[in-house]
Computed example of a mutant assay.
Amino acid sequence: MKNAMNLVAAAKAHVTEVPLDAADAAIRDGDVLIDVREESEFAAGHIPGAVHASRGMLEFKLSSTPALQPRDLKVVLYCKTSGRAALAAQTMRDMGYLNVKSLAGGFDAWKAADKPVVQPELPSFG
C-alpha cells in the first residue's frame, strides 16, 4: 500500500525540481509562479509575484482561469517543503502542461535563504 511519501517520491522522479540557487532565474524566466499551499499559509507570507492555487483546488483553478489554461505556460510551483508542489507538478503534467517545475525545498528553503517574502500587513492603531 502506498503512502504520501511514496507518492511524492514517484512524482519527484518525473518532475523537474529547480534548486534554490537557480530559483530566481526560473521565476524570472517563467510565465507564472503558483503557491499550492493552503490559503492560510499563503496569507501568512509568500514569494513575491506568486498566485495562490491550493493543491486541492489546482485543477479547478487552472480550468477556470483563462490566463492559466495555455499548456505551454512556463510554470514554477512551490509549497512548504516541496512535496505538494511535486504532486501538483505531476498533476499538471497529466493535464498536458509542458513546462512545469517545482521549487526544491519549497517556501521553507526560500525563507531560510533570506529571499524576499511578502508578509501580511498588520493594521496600524496609532
Rank of each mutant, 00 (worst) to 15 (best):
C79K: 01
G83R: 06
S54K: 06
A86G: 06
F60N: 06
D72W: 05
A50L: 11
L58C: 01
A44N: 15
A67D: 12
A85E: 00
A89P: 08
L58P: 07
T91W: 06
K61D: 09
C79A: 08
S64W: 02
G83L: 06
A86L: 06
C79F: 00
T65L: 08
G45F: 08
M57Q: 13
A43V: 13
V76L: 04
F42E: 09
S63H: 10
S82Y: 09
E41K: 13
L77Y: 00
Q90D: 15
G83Q: 05
S54I: 04
A67R: 10
G49T: 09
K61V: 15
D72M: 03
L68W: 15
E38C: 13
L73A: 02
G83F: 02
A89T: 08
A85Q: 01
S63F: 11
L68D: 01
E41Q: 15
A86F: 05
G56D: 07
E41W: 09
S63T: 03
S63L: 11
P70D: 05
L77H: 01
G45H: 11
S82P: 05
Q90E: 11
E38A: 15
S64P: 02
H52M: 11
Q90P: 02
P70M: 07
M57C: 06
Y78W: 01
P70Q: 09
G83P: 01
P48C: 13
G83V: 09
A85L: 05
H52L: 11
R37K: 13
G56N: 12
Y78I: 03
T65D: 12
G45W: 07
P66H: 07
L73R: 07
A53E: 09
V76S: 03
G45Y: 10
K80M: 12
L87G: 00
S63D: 12
R55G: 14
A88F: 01
E59I: 06
V76W: 00
L58S: 07
R84V: 00
K61W: 07
R55L: 12
K74Y: 04
Q90R: 12
G45E: 13
V75M: 14
R84E: 00
A86K: 02
A88D: 11
H46Y: 09
V75R: 04
F42W: 15
L73E: 06
Q90C: 03
A44K: 14
L73C: 06
S54M: 10
A86D: 04
A53L: 09
L77F: 02
L58A: 11
C79Y: 00
